[in-house]
Structures are given as structure tokens and as C-alpha cells.
């Protein structure tokens, strides 16, 4: 199976099962791209999300393009993106052509009620895994807590939080190198 076909099918699955916004795709990306394929590490996934969040456009599309490019260049980026949007195009075209009041069916609402609970469990489970992998010291713990408080309770834009965190990281890196030269 060629890499491009794999990219397409993986991102098609992600597009078909992401309910409720870009971050809901994280558990499936983790399973497919990190655990099964080993194409990226947890750290690299976080880098993708940081870039996807701070650039314009749909986060899921940004992440798909980024991972596709890393794997197989420009053509890989385009193939992964096509895969992630194709389920939307098919499903929404059918719904908006034939039944615009799709979400009012009782069975749809109950199914979504169940799916939403699963999405919560999957996201929290992934946060826990990411936390274990990406946070290695006290500075990491402080940045994690600070980002959480700033975004959840003080309504600061995630883009600003990411920029501040980058500056903190650069400052610490600079200090560490200085110490190395000094000592």
C-alpha cells in the first residue's frame, strides 16, 4: 500500500469520525499516526496543533496539511487534506440536498448525545497521555497550568498564550546555553 493511499485513508477516517471541532480529531490522530504508524511523536503532534491553532483556517485542515507534508511533501499535504474534507463534502451535500432538518430527528439527537460523552472521554484520555509525554520539568508544569488558567478562566486568546510560551521557552534555552558556556 503506497504512502499516499495510506495518508488518504487515514485522514478520510479522521474526517468521518471527528465530531465537534478540530481537537476532537486528536485521539484518532494519536491512535493512527503515532501509535500505529509511528510517523510522528507526541511532541511533533503538539507542534502541529500549535501551528494549526496560530495560523488562519480550519484547524483540522491545517493539521492534515502539515502531517501530510511531513510525510510526503506537497503532494502528501494535498492528499491528506483531500481525505479529511471529503467525508464532510459527501455527508453535507446529501443532507443539505435532501433533508435540511436532519438534526431534528430524535434518533440523531440521541446518537449525538452518546457520541458527545465519548468525545469528552477520548479527549481527556488523550490530554492525560500528552501530559505524561510532553511535560518533563517544573517549568513545563507551570506553563501547562498557566495556559489552562489564562484560556479557560481569563479568556485570553490561545494564539497569545502560544506566543508567550514560545518566548518563555526561548528565554530558558538562552539561559541554559549561557550556563553551559559559563560553566
Amino acid at each position: 500500500m503506497s504512502v499516499l493511499w495510506e495518508l488518504f485513508t487515514i485522514f478520510f477516517r479522521i474526517g468521518a469520525f471527528t465530531f465537534g471541532g478540530g481537537y476532537a480529531m486528536l485521539p484518532i490522530i494519536q491512535e493512527e499516526v503515532v501509535d500505529k504508524k509511528g510517523w510522528l511523536t507526541e511532541d511533533e503532534i503538539l507542534d502541529c496543533f500549535a501551528i494549526g491553532q496560530s495560523t488562519p483556517g480550519v484547524i483540522a485542515v491545517n493539521t492534515a496539511t502539515f502531517i501530510g507534508y511531513k510525510r510526503k511533501g506537497i503532494i502528501g499535504g494535498i492528499v491528506a487534506t483531500t481525505g479529511v474534507v471529503l467525508p464532510s463534502i459527501i455527508i453535507i451535500t446529501i443532507i443539505s440536498t435532501f433533508f435540511q432538518h436532519f438534526q431534528e430527528y430524535e434518533i440523531v439527537q440521541h446518537a449525538l448525545g452518546g457520541i458527545r460523552v465519548a468525545v469528552v472521554a477520548l479527549i481527556l484520555n488523550t490530554v492525560y497521555k500528552m501530559y505524561k509525554k510532553s511535560i518533563k520539568d517544573w517549568l513545563g508544569i507551570s506553563l501547562f497550568i498557566a495556559a489552562f488558567i489564562l484560556i479557560a478562566f481569563l479568556d485570553i486568546s490561545p494564539v497569545i498564550v502560544i506566543i508567550i510560551a514560545a518566548l518563555v521557552g526561548m528565554f530558558k534555552g538562552h539561559n541554559d546555553r549561557f550556563k553551559e558556556i559559563d560553566g
Partner: peptide, 13 residues
């Protein structure tokens, strides 16, 4: 070093 700061923050996000 920039990304070493960004990763914990994105996990927080």
C-alpha cells in the same frame, strides 16, 4: 527551545 515552551502550553490548551 521555543517549542519546548509551546508544547506544555498547547497541552494546557
Amino acid at each position: 527551545s521555543a517549542f519546548s515552551g509551546i508544547r506544555p502550553a498547547v497541552t494546557g490548551l
